[in-house]
């Protein structure tokens, strides 16, 4: 067994996912299958291989450049807050975080 029920619940907590009892058991079995399949990566000797995080470097494309840091008007707060499920300008509202 690659992953236990306790581990599934721990990972769900890390990922901030509420799972039902049925989901925990189904996910445990499915993740177990997937992780067993992924174990085939252990067949390869990668001790002298560099990790690859980005495709562009690998193809030595001309260096991507960051844009110039110029101050520009960015008056979007109203449009952004309109999409929030709970807001009171100029803030997003969330359940109480700090206990007095």
């Amino acid at each position: 067994m690659k992953i236990s029920r306790e581990e599934v619940m721990h990972v769900a907590e890390l990922a901030h996912l509420e799972l039902t009892e049925a989901e925990v058991e189904r996910l445990r079995t499915q993740l177990d299958d997937i992780l067993s399949y992924i174990d085939k990566l252990k067949e390869l000797d990668v001790s002298r291989v560099e990790p690859m995080a980005q495709a562009l470097e690998a193809h030595s494309a001309p260096e991507t450049t960051l844009r110039d840091d110029i101050v520009r008007t960015c008056d979007v707060s109203k449009a952004i807050l309109e999409q929030a499920p709970h807001a009171k300008a100029p803030y997003f509202r969330v359940p109480k975080v700090i206990e007095r």
Binding site: H16, E18, Q83, A84, P85, P95
Partner: peptide
């Protein structure tokens, strides 16, 4: 996470709100 856009499912704490929303 239920704060800036999209669905929010309320909870008694911030953490519970995150978990309910994402769940």
């Amino acid at each position: 996470d239920g704060v800036r856009y999209g669905l929010r499912v309320d909870g008694s704490s911030l953490r519970e709100m995150y978990e309910n929303t994402r769940g």
